Computed example of a mutant assay.
Amino acid sequence: MVLTGLARLNEADREDAVALLLSCAAVPRWAEEIVRGRPYADVDAALAAARAAALPWSEDEVGAALARHPRIGEGVHGEAADAAHSRQEQSGVDPADARTVRRLAARNAEYEARFGHVFLIRAAGRTGPQILAALEERLGNDPATERRLVAEQLREIAVLRLAKDLA
């Protein structure tokens, strides 16, 4: 039997439910906490639990989740559920827009040299030029501000992915 909607979370065995959540954000503590809260009355309750469990994520949790995120503009490879999410989210970056793709690559390299990890932004609904503008703006942040923004973006991404998976 293939579970859909909220049943994917509520009725799946623990391993499958954890895997579903880890495809949204590779943070095991977060996934386990949400699974322990089952069953949820509705999708809104599940998403509220996901938001609450992500406040706060530790530096190590954010780092682990970042390690699973591809660079924006480089294309996403692999068949895992998180790769599928990333491909869809980054669809606003047009690979035919060579100028934007080149600038994203250059700014991604600057960002990684400055902050030590990939640039993370909720890319869903944003165009390549919008993502590039945000990246260029965030290059001016101090490390503490950027860590806070990355954690916020990661929470948004995780909840949006879970909402899509439960729809």
Rank of each mutant, 00 (worst) to 15 (best):
A106D: 15
D60A: 14
S23I: 02
I121W: 06
L47C: 05
L55F: 14
A158C: 06
A65F: 03
E59N: 10
E137L: 15
R126L: 14
I157A: 01
A80R: 00
T100F: 07
G128S: 06
V76N: 03
A26L: 03
L120H: 01
R138T: 08
S58K: 12
A80M: 00
D97L: 04
Q130I: 09
G63Q: 07
L9D: 03
D165T: 14
A52S: 12
A26K: 01
L66W: 01
A26P: 00
P95W: 01
A158I: 03
A25S: 08
A113T: 11
H85G: 00
A144P: 07
Q153M: 09
L6R: 06
L55W: 15
H85V: 00
T4V: 15
G78F: 00
P70W: 00
R155M: 12
L6E: 10
G116V: 08
E33M: 12
L162S: 07
D42C: 10
G140V: 07
A17T: 02
I131R: 08
T127P: 02
F115Y: 11
R51I: 11
H117V: 09
P143S: 05
A19Q: 01
V159F: 04
W30H: 02
A64N: 09
F119W: 11
A64L: 11
E146D: 06
E137S: 15
L20V: 04
P28A: 04
